[in-house]
Design a protein around this nucleic acid. Structure first.
Lengths: 133, 133, 133, 133
DNA sequence: GTGGTCTAGACCACA
DNA sequence: GTGGTCTAGACCACA
């Protein structure tokens, strides 16, 4: 079962945090087709946010075709975003974990590592310009 | 000179994007003490956001002691956040760049790589629970 | 409930006056954890300043970790700054009140007393030079 | 000779800080009729503010009849604001100094003392409401 | 209903 | 010219 962690000071709205965390779980294969997302009630109890906020996030995921909401039943994963190369035992994952260790041993803090990573990500995977209206 | 890239669809408010990008440049050593940030006017020309939004970001950075605003003169970096281990020619950077290459060759997209990275970052550098002081 | 008094001729910006008065109430134990600050609307009605100005002050207090803003709910004190020695029935308070009386009886005006006090405060609690980090 | 201390983060504009500090010196008898204020050039060298800012402060003091500016000569105190009761060897001063000591020994910090003082000052010398337009 | 962000524009302080 | 503050008003996120 996924567990959402809402950071009220991150600057990202709670509903977007739920969307992001769900997509991340889909990409990592933590959530697979048929899996049930936590009910709004469960999320409310775990995170102290408003049920409407959860429902808004689920609606957005449904809009993108990632989940299916069945009234009175629950919300279920419709399709996976996982790729075999990102499996839990993949080499890419192991290498990243090792890098984190080295970064930590070198005395970096989370924010330092995050800065390096963002920079490398932007170089390695340039964002496609979204372009005008 | 730093150049800000504002993504209006990221869910992060423009002023926070400026704050984040500035901090990242400070951590990467791209901005060093004494360097001048672009004036509000320059940012406005480059990004089409409102000058007040830029000033709000700069005020926030000043509040954190990272920059100094001098009326009629400009806004200047007060202290660096760079660490020698994150220098442009550091091993940690080179390793990350290599990882990005392998990820790309393995057929991952930016979002896949980002998901793996977020996961690894959270494992390698667990977020300190905020909670009160 | 705290009541803000805005002096438009003090030279201090309204939002800083709200910040200062709130901190003072926190130090005096007038505001305690869990207490709600007046809503922007209430402050507007009482002081005739703009709601955005109030929100700016509250944001600043939140940034310092002193209050928590919850959308649609209100803004609440997060931690106290009160010390037992400054309680309403403390000796230190009583002595100050007595001093004010004597000053007044000696024919001093508010500004005279304020000048003596600033001078004594600077001698008794030298300001720490700010300087770098 | 008076020495101005400009705090760029106090929220009070530099020219008002000069005005305030000058008046305080006049009330404390540190500046007496005939005394010369530092020249703009001297203040600039000591505080790194713009000469125009100093001149604006001196103009304001002149407007209030406290000093006289003589072109090419300097700015001189015209009348004192000191009262015998606030002399350096007055009982009121000694009592305040003793209070500061006790506050400090009780473990208060400058900001705590300042909060107590502001509160006592407001009770002892209620501000006269300035009233409408 | 309550707070958060942004914009446009005004006015001021400072250099 | 550059930054700082404020206002009025719009629109959104959340409860």
């Amino acid at each position: 079962m996924v567990e959402y962690l809402i950071d009220r000071h991150s600057g990202l709205s709670p509903y977007l945090q739920i969307v992001e965390q769900t997509k991340r779980a889909l990409r990592l294969g933590v959530l697979l087709p048929g899996d049930q997302l936590p009910t709004a009630r469960e999320v409310v109890e775990a995170t102290a946010i408003n049920p409407n906020t959860v429902l808004k996030a689920y609606r957005e995921l449904e809009r993108e075709g990632l989940v299916d909401s069945r009234r009175g039943v629950g919300t279920f994963v419709r399709r996976s975003l996982a790729k075999p190369q990102t499996a839990a035992d993949s080499a890419l994952r192991a290498e990243l974990a090792a890098w984190m260790l080295r970064a930590r041993e070198a005395g970096l803090e989370r924010e330092d590592a995050a800065a390096l990573i963002s920079d490398a990500l932007d170089s390695g995977f340039p964002e496609t310009t979204t372009g005008g209206p």
